[in-house]
Design a binder for these strands. Sequence first.
DNA 1: ACCTGAACACCGTTCAAGT
DNA 2: ACCTGAACACCGTTCAAGT
Lengths: 188, 188
Amino acid sequence: VRTTRDQLVDVAVELLDEGGPAAVTLREVGRRCGLSHNAPYRHFEDKEELLAAVAARELRKQARAESGRDVRPPITALRHRMDAYIRWATRHPARFKLTFGPWSRAWPELGEAAQEARVVVVGLVNAAQESGDLPPGEPERMAALVLATAHGAVDLALAGHLSPSGRGKASPLGLVEDLFRALAKGKA
Amino acid sequence: VRTTRDQLVDVAVELLDEGGPAAVTLREVGRRCGLSHNAPYRHFEDKEELLAAVAARELRKQARAESGRDVRPPITALRHRMDAYIRWATRHPARFKLTFGPWSRAWPELGEAAQEARVVVVGLVNAAQESGDLPPGEPERMAALVLATAHGAVDLALAGHLSPSGRGKASPLGLVEDLFRALAKGKA
DNA sequence: ACCTGAACACCGTTCAAGT
DNA sequence: ACCTGAACACCGTTCAAGT
């Protein structure tokens, strides 16, 4: 079903991609939907709630993308998952930044989307441990380490702060692979 | 010297800490300095340049904090450095978020501050390699891995997305220590 | 339940003018 | 060189009113 609410979220993403966070305006969102300048208030408490809905939907979409592929070995599936995350952030930096933006309240919908993304990674880490590609240890914690590295690497890369000097130039995915190597050696 | 420009940056940080990014307003910054509502335009091109000045100053201050301590062994000094970074971000989330916010132009001052922070970490990684606490390998790249993990861990923690489930609960510093352990085992 | 139009208080930015 | 005051175009939000 394509509700007016969904359309408002669509237009918000459109504006976000076009002109960055500053371009997302309740009034313009209303106008692009052919409604009055404050029609959005019939569907969202305020601007922050619209932005939270955008963030939750995009993060959930990302979490479910490419999760159907059942690649072997599991460590490769895990690498593909983190590669998808990094490519998503690189391709849609404004959406990525919004997703982890500063919220003045807690948004359950967004928290659930984040958990959904986390659960997928924990499952892949678990499988990689069973196949012997990753050492034993609490999967939740190891997944957090993998996610933190991928997330931080791509965030620093977007800011242009990921060692732009010539030697030892690092890509976000390259750093994740470095982490996998370090973890794998630890198991031997 | 305490120039008017410095005072404007001070007030901007004050507003940022008080009410988040939305509270930082050129007009209010002017007012709090006892000037007219658009006096800031005599010192900054536009709002973004003021924010970039704030970000650059805060990041540089962070990079230089606790860099004088000469702790042994070097791996401990490196851990202290990352701990300082994590505590800074946790204590001043709005400054941290602003520092890595989305800029429409490149700000050399900010880039230099980031490089300054990076150089410190590269030096500590190098020392830890020489003392045998970290395995050999390009120091720039290993430093990028360490920084990415710390940065991503604290960013996820601020968003409340760092495995808030009971078991395997991870703190940003705990994840950095996990990384050190994985790297150290690799050297043997 | 959803929408409109006027209204209020605010903001970024520009401009003519002052010292 | 630095500052002021008026002005313009915009925005988030509220409210009375319509269907």
